Simulated assay, not measured.
Amino acid sequence: MPTPLPDVVLITKADCHLCSDARAAVGRVTEALGLGWSEQSVDNDVALRERFAEEIPVVLVDGVQRDFWKIDEVRLERTLRRALQPGI
């Protein structure tokens, strides 16, 4: 059975310069690995806004918070490579 692809979600908000940088970082890493990603805004989701408040932008991988504010591309790539190769 093939390994499911990691679910990468970027949590953002409007008028957020760090979010623009995060979009670019997540895009570069996921593109290099042949993965997709999605974006959710706290502007339209009260629960997300309460959960992440001052940590925006936030990267979730399979529902687990992996980074916030400034996205570390090396760490994100390492996390995603591990998710693609379970048991390692």
Rank of each mutant, 00 (worst) to 15 (best):
P2R: 04
P2V: 11
T3G: 06
T3Q: 06
T3E: 02
P4G: 09
D7G: 08
D7E: 14
V8G: 04
V9E: 14
V9K: 13
V9F: 06
L10P: 05
I11G: 07
T12P: 03
K13C: 08
A14I: 11
D15P: 05
C16R: 07
H17A: 05
C19Y: 07
C19E: 10
D21Y: 11
D21F: 01
D21T: 13
A22D: 10
R23H: 10
R23S: 08
R23W: 02
A24K: 12
A24P: 00
A25I: 03
A25W: 01
V26N: 05
V26M: 07
G27C: 10
R28A: 14
T30A: 10
E31Q: 11
G34A: 12
G34C: 11
G34L: 03
G34I: 04
L35R: 01
G36W: 00
G36L: 08
W37S: 12
W37P: 02
S38H: 07
S38Y: 04
E39Q: 13
E39V: 13
E39T: 02
E39W: 04
Q40R: 15
Q40T: 12
S41M: 15
S41D: 13
V42K: 10
D43I: 07
D43C: 11
N44P: 00
N44S: 14
D45M: 14
D45C: 14
L48R: 00
L48H: 09
L48T: 06
R49M: 13
R49C: 08
E50P: 02
E50I: 03
E50K: 12
E50Y: 12
R51E: 15
A53E: 10
A53I: 05
A53K: 10
I56P: 04
P57L: 10
V59E: 13
V61N: 03
V61I: 09
D62P: 01
G63F: 12
V64D: 15
R66G: 09
R66F: 06
R66I: 11
R66N: 08
D67R: 03
F68Q: 11
F68P: 02
W69C: 01
W69H: 09
I71K: 00
I71N: 00
V74I: 03
V74A: 13
V74Q: 08
V74M: 01
R75N: 07
R75P: 04
R75Q: 13
R75Y: 12
L76D: 04
E77K: 12
R78K: 09
T79V: 14
L80M: 05
L80W: 01
L80H: 03
R81K: 14
R81D: 00
R81T: 06
A83L: 01
A83V: 00
A83D: 01
L84I: 01
L84Q: 13
Q85G: 02
Q85C: 05
Q85F: 00
P86E: 00
P86G: 12
G87C: 13
G87E: 03
